[in-house]
Simulated assay, not measured.
Amino acid sequence: MNESSFLKPLVNASSLNNSYLLMRHGESEANVSGVIVSDPAIGCERFGLTEHGLQQIRASINGFRGKPITQIVCSDFLRTMQTAQSVAEILHLPQPQQEIGLRERFFGNWEGMSADHYEKIWQRDEMGQEIDDEVEQPQAVLQRGVDVISKLETQYRDQVILLISHGDMLQILRTLVTGISPHKHRSLTHHQTAEIKYLVSQDE
């Protein structure tokens, strides 16, 4: 399913079977170290949450006032899995469902380098540039997210589903409901660690 075929139903919440919330993982060791960790071979095994990250998650969940969350779906990176497990424990929900389509955007040759380089990549995104450094393009990231939601739409009905993922994935996924190009994702309000936002609600 391509972006154009799924964009209209996402904007029209009444045509969706479920409501979707977006949550970024809590503060991670990668955030504190200021390094880019996007390779699944590394991110699925290392760079989990900090104690502050766990506190952020508890505060975010305890402060959430929306419809009760009924399902949790997360990336299989360590920092998102730990976030999802913490949310499940707080809300007394079943074990989260893992979806590799919600993984961190792959930053190619920038892997392991300073997080300061994100700005360079985002500037290229804004201009629609593609450079051969193996960075995953925004459209490809968007497609992964759309594929996950499409799958969940066939699995569930009348659920409030919390998608726990990573900064760029969530920023890019939100372009679906704003109508802007995925390359313009940084024009949206920054998604903070452990922050919860609606992607689309059936109440809208």
Results as ranks from 00 to 15, higher is better:
135 V>M: 01
160 V>Q: 07
136 E>C: 02
130 E>V: 15
144 R>L: 14
175 T>G: 05
159 Q>Y: 06
156 Y>G: 03
177 V>I: 14
142 L>C: 04
167 G>P: 04
137 Q>R: 12
170 L>F: 04
130 E>M: 14
166 H>R: 01
143 Q>A: 08
145 G>D: 03
182 P>D: 02
142 L>K: 04
152 L>S: 08
168 D>Q: 11
169 M>S: 14
140 A>H: 08
172 I>H: 01
131 I>A: 10
126 E>H: 15
141 V>R: 00
160 V>P: 07
129 Q>M: 13
172 I>Q: 02
122 W>E: 07
178 T>H: 08
156 Y>R: 03
132 D>H: 14
149 I>H: 01
181 S>V: 06
121 I>Y: 08
155 Q>V: 12
160 V>E: 06
143 Q>Y: 05
125 D>T: 00
139 Q>W: 13
172 I>E: 00
147 D>P: 13
164 I>P: 11
150 S>H: 12
165 S>H: 03
174 R>P: 01
146 V>Q: 05
153 E>G: 08
136 E>S: 05
129 Q>T: 13
180 I>P: 08
126 E>S: 14
173 L>W: 00
124 R>W: 10
152 L>D: 07
124 R>L: 10
134 E>D: 14
174 R>W: 01
159 Q>L: 06
123 Q>C: 13
130 E>G: 12
156 Y>C: 07
127 M>C: 13
163 L>H: 04
176 L>T: 00
135 V>A: 02
